[in-house]
Amino acid sequence: MQQIFNFIYKNSNRLLFLLLLGISLFLTIQSHSYHRSKVISSANFVSGGVYEKINNVSEYLNLRTQNEMLAQENAKLRSYLFDLKDSTAISKLDSVKGMRDTDIIVSKVIHNSFNSYENFLTLNSGANQGVKSDMGVVNSLGLVGIIDNVSPNYSTVVSILNVKSQINAKIKKSNHFGSLVWNGKSTGYAQLIDVPRLAAIRKGDTIVTGGQSVIFPENINIGTIDRIYVDNQTHYYTLNIKLFNDMTNLGHVYIIKSKDREEIINLEKGRKNE
């Protein structure tokens, strides 16, 4: 017994080090798995609050670009409105189901990371505003990411600049599907992998979200094809996509709330259980 105490006393420094290192490695491994830790994330009220304070100041620095983006989006929406036959009549709700199937929550990016392999954004709306895990996030230019952790007032987003994210996407004109991933290199480009060789593609074609995902509605802009090459192992096309969004400069974003999502997920779950 005496010896045990002696041993602990002698090596107390090393034991403390190993204990703390064990905790940190546990947190690291957990963060790399799909079910991420809920505590160590910038959605908690301390870091969320700090980031909101910082953002309140830094927001003023790019008001001009944000204003321009909003004006452009308004102009685009206006042009849709003018093209309607009767621009004063409110368009009817989806008459088959009797309700709209997507809702939008407006939110603001209060922290944006883009210099590691797994990048996350922090938004200033959370469960109190109706945000839930696995909702899609877009802005006026295109795709941004998918909601990850949610706290009462803040939420984190897995950005498309995250080597773990994988989003169903397609080529707009030919409907060939692929998966949008990121290779961890440049912040302006993402990669579309597993595109069949049959697909007739050209440099400059537009890539949009595919309809297979329950997270995003179909046809949300992602980017244009920048380079085309054939993967040596799978012999599928790999496309380098130039993103429409400047992921290093994000302001307001829209969180997409799909009404049918729960129903689809429940349906697919039931099929798997059988």
Partner: peptide, 24 residues
């Protein structure tokens, strides 16, 4: 020192959403 650096790294990790890499 060990406890202080643990706290230092943990704070960094909370703020940069990175699990425990700064802590380690």
């Amino acid at each position: 020192l060990l406890l202080a650096s643990f706290l230092l790294g943990l704070t960094m990790d909370v703020f940069s959403n990175s699990g425990g890499i700064h802590t380690a």
